[in-house]
Structures are given as C-alpha cells and as structure tokens.
Simulated scan of single mutants.
Amino acid sequence: MERKNLENTLSELVHVLKPAPFPSANATEHWSVELDGTEETNSRWRTYMSAALKTAKTFEIHCWKEETECIGLALRYGKRKDADWRHGEIIAGDVTPEFISLLLGLPKPTDTEPCNKMTPFFTIALDNCFWSEHYGTELSGTAGPT
C-alpha cells in the first residue's frame, strides 16, 4: 500500500513540474546550418569554415577507415590521435596557414553519395566549438556565423 501511495504522489508531482528558465544572458548562442542537396558549390561551406578558422588554434579530422586518401591528406597537417573508434581514424593538429589553405582550397567533391558533400572529410572539429559534420553538410558552432 505504501508503494502505491508513493507512485500516486510522484505522478501528481510530475504533472506540476515546470522547466527552469534558461539563463539566456549567460548562455553561449548555439547555431546550426544544413547545406542540402541543392548546393552546387561548396562556397557557403567555405564562408563558414573561413570565419571559424580565424579563431581556431587546433583541429580534429575524423575519417572512416576506408577513406585512406583522406586520412593520408589529413596526416600531412596532423597526427593520429589515440581514440577508441574502431571504424575510423582521428587526426589532430594545429591550425596553421598551410592547413587553412588546404581546407579553403578543397574543391567540392564530385561524389554525392551518401550526401551532397562539401568536403572530403567526414568531420572537421575546431577547438572554438565549430563543427563541420557529415562531409560538411551539417555545420554548427557556439559563436555567431558570419
């Protein structure tokens, strides 16, 4: 009988719960952008990446194991990171002028499977909380996009 009373009381209390207000004055603004299949070039991706690279110090590139060419390219600018990801490789390094030139000079991949790729890298993460994911089709960050 005591358990039933407890369940009833908890059920009643759950119904009157209200979320705490989000402290927007102190919160970092989060944004995200999806670049869909209608993007004919990667110029929008380049614009976002260029802005993010201005304040980034380090990067991580995530590639699937079978993407050996991309792994090799990323290894020119960073080193393999110890990670427990058995399906891929993570390459980490410093954001240098050479690395910036590489990223911003990449042509849009012609391979559009499984998506309309903006970059050959599955994920590019910068230390300033900018993320280019799913081959550059999903961008997100905490600083306002330009």
Rank of each mutant, 00 (worst) to 15 (best):
T47P: 01
G136H: 02
S43T: 15
A125C: 09
T68K: 14
K57M: 07
A125Q: 11
S43W: 08
D36I: 12
M118Q: 12
Y77Q: 05
L104E: 06
T119K: 08
I90W: 01
F99H: 01
S132N: 10
T119C: 10
I124D: 00
K54R: 15
D111Q: 03
K65I: 11
T119F: 09
G144E: 12
E40P: 09
L35W: 11
H134D: 11
L73F: 05
E138P: 01
M118R: 02
F59Y: 11
P114N: 02
D111V: 02
A52Y: 07
N42Y: 08
I124K: 00
L102H: 04
C115F: 08
T41D: 01
A74F: 09
L139S: 06
I71G: 03
G105Y: 04
G93L: 06
N128H: 08
L139Q: 07
A52P: 01
L139D: 03
T58F: 04
T137C: 09
K57R: 15
D127M: 03
E66N: 08
T112A: 09
R76I: 13
P97W: 12
F121D: 00
R80K: 15
A143Q: 15
N42T: 04
E39S: 09
R80P: 03
A83E: 11
L103Q: 04
G37R: 13
G78A: 12
Y135F: 14
C70L: 07
L102C: 06
W85F: 02
P109T: 14
R76C: 10
T96L: 04
I100W: 07
F122P: 01
